[in-house]
Structure formats: C-alpha cells, structure tokens
C-alpha cells in the first residue's frame, strides 16, 4: 500500500483536469443557454461564436461559466454528473424505479445492471468456449508435430488481424440461420479470447526444460503421465497470464458484438447514447464496462493466487 498516496494523487489530478476541461468543451452550449436566459454574451449570436476558439470564448465570458458543470447533454459531462448518472441508472433505477427489481421483480431494462448482466453473460460464455478450445488446441499442438507446424504459424498470424471486423458479419450470418440472442456475441468473444490462450498455453506446456523431461523419461513415465505431472502444472502461470488477456478481449468482443443488434447490453447502450446525444449515458456505460473488466481480471488473478497456493508456490 506504499503506492496508495501517489495513485490517489494521480487520480485526483486526472479528475481535476477533467473538471477544467469541461469549461472549454462545453462553452458553446453554456453561452447559448445564458444568452437565452437574457445575459449579455460577448460576442452575440450562437452562429458567430461557432467558429471561434473555445478557450478564447471561455476567457471573454468568464462570469457566465457557472453552468459548465451542470448542462444536460454536455459535450463533456463533469465527473459528478457521470457519477450521478451511474447512481441513478443502477441503484436508484432498481430500488425506486417503477420497472426496478424491487417494484416489478425483474431488472429494469433502463438500468446498467440489466445491460451489464447481458454483456457479462455473453462475455463469460464466450470466454469459457474460447479458452476451453484454446487449451485443447494447445495440447494438440504440443503433442503432434504435424499440427504444430501446420497450425501454429497461422495462429500467430491471426493475432495480427483485426478480428473485430468480422463481428457484424458473424451476427448477421448466425441470425440468418436462426441463431440469435446470447450465442452470436459469445462466438465473437470466444474468437477473441481463443488465440491469446492458444499461444500462451503452448508456451506454457513447452516450458519444462530438457532436464526435467529427461528425468521423467528415466522414470519411464508415459506421455500422459508426463503431461499430467509435469507439463500441465508448469503451464499454469502462463495459462493464467493469457487468461487475463483473454477475458479482457472477450469483454471487448461482447461489447462490439452488441453494436449491430440493439437488443440490450453495454454496447447497445453506448451506441444508443451516441445516437441521442446522451453523453452521460455513454460515460456511465463506459465506466460500468471498466468496472466489469476490472472485476473479471481481478477474479482471474484471485483464482490464480488460490491455484498457485494449492500447488505449493510461495505466496
């Protein structure tokens, strides 16, 4: 916790910069509103101000900027507006809202918890499919030289390809053969988490050195014994490192997968927000997605620590 002080300082500085940035970012809308309310703005008329520098405008009308941190649909909503939106679209909506879980028994379709739950479901299912297949393929690659030489170069090349470009097409194609809902998004998530796991796991299964492999050979261990007793345990650290990358990629996949079909989820929420200019909604969805990512990565790290402890590693 020695780093807590510096971290808090950096976060505080970022929040401070954010508040300052709100002034020039929102100055146009703020001055237009002030003019409508009867204040005298330098220079007059929203159309003459449109092409002027925002910072200059902020300085020449410095007494009218009180609204900078509270305008609706601001270009840059201030941190407390985002926090308020987070609160009202999670706790407030569920507990006090007409459609919330307390009053109706189901999650409200206007709350971030509902949308986050949809995204989380697709992420986790996709991650499990992708990493499961990835581990299987890695085992195959380590044990078959043919597979190694045929598949491995392609697995590496495929990591350099912007796979998300496939997302809208996968959704539409699966829809046209009658698959919809969670599964198409999960397929994209699985695809994104697949290759990091393959590459990491192959590295891990190959990590025992020749000496250790020779030792098992002198014990007359069979291939499966070597696999279960040496290769698999020594691949665990590599596996968890790539699982962390994989689950973050899965979340991105699920969010991108929600863009073409507007049926709920954080991606749909972001796109909806950008269509209707609801910036607080985008920011709140973004922070919610960030929180989910952080929890997922933390959870993998927690499982990793537990596993390493059970395997007898130093904490």
């Amino acid at each position: 916790m020695r780093n807590l002080g510096p971290i808090l300082t950096v976060v505080a500085v970022i929040v401070g910069l954010w508040y300052i940035a709100c002034v020039p970012m929102n100055v146009q809308e703020v001055l237009t509103n002030a003019e409508r309310a009867g204040e005298v703005v330098q220079p007059e008329g929203a159309s003459t101000r449109r092409d002027m520098s925002r910072i200059g405008l902020a300085f020449s009308n410095s007494d009218l900027l009180g609204e900078s941190w509270s305008t609706d649909r601001a270009r840059l909503p201030s941190p407390h507006q985002v926090v308020a939106e987070l609160w009202s679209s999670t706790w407030d909506e569920e507990v006090n809202g007409r459609r919330g879980i307390v009053n109706s028994g189901t999650l409200s379709n206007r709350s971030l918890i509902y949308h986050g739950w949809i995204t989380l479901g697709a992420t986790v299912v996709g991650f499990l499919i992708g990493s499961g297949l990835g581990i299987l393929l890695a085992v195959g690659i380590v044990h078959s030289r043919t597979m190694d030489m045929s598949v491995m170069p392609w697995a590496i090349v495929s990591q350099t390809i912007p796979i998300v470009a496939l997302a809208p097409m996968i959704i539409v194609v699966l829809y046209s053969i009658g698959v919809e809902g969670l599964l198409p998004k999960a397929v994209i998530s699985a695809y994104l988490s697949f290759f990091p796991v393959v590459v990491g796991m192959v590295k891990g299964l190959r990590s025992p050195d020749a000496m250790q492999l020779d030792l098992l050979q002198t014990y007359n261990a069979s291939r499966s014994q070597t696999f279960w007793m040496l290769r698999l345990p020594s691949s665990v650290p590599y596996l968890f490192a790539s699982l962390k990358i994989g689950i973050a990629a899965s979340l991105v996949g699920a969010i991108v997968g929600e863009l073409p079909v507007q049926r709920g989820g954080l991606g749909a929420r972001m796109l909806g927000g950008s269509y209707y200019g609801q910036t607080e909604q985008i920011w709140a969805a973004l922070f919610f997605a960030a929180a989910i990512a952080a929890v997922l990565v933390w959870f993998i790290g927690w499982v990793e620590r537990r596993t390493m402890k059970l395997m007898g590693a130093e904490a």
Partner: peptide, 28 residues
C-alpha cells in the same frame, strides 16, 4: 512519484475496453 502513481493507473486503463471511448471521441 509519478512512476508509482501513474503506472498502476496506466496498467489498469490498458486492460479496459477502450473501444468504449469511440462513441465519445467520434462526437468530439
């Protein structure tokens, strides 16, 4: 001081779904 403060924050942000900033930046 910066290294100890900014690096954990940077590590955290690097793992986030940054594609989510796309709608905001497109608006700006």
């Amino acid at each position: 001081f910066l290294r100890r403060g900014l690096l954990p924050v940077g590590n955290f942000l690097a793992a986030l779904p940054i594609v989510g900033t796309a709608p905001i930046l497109v608006m700006w």
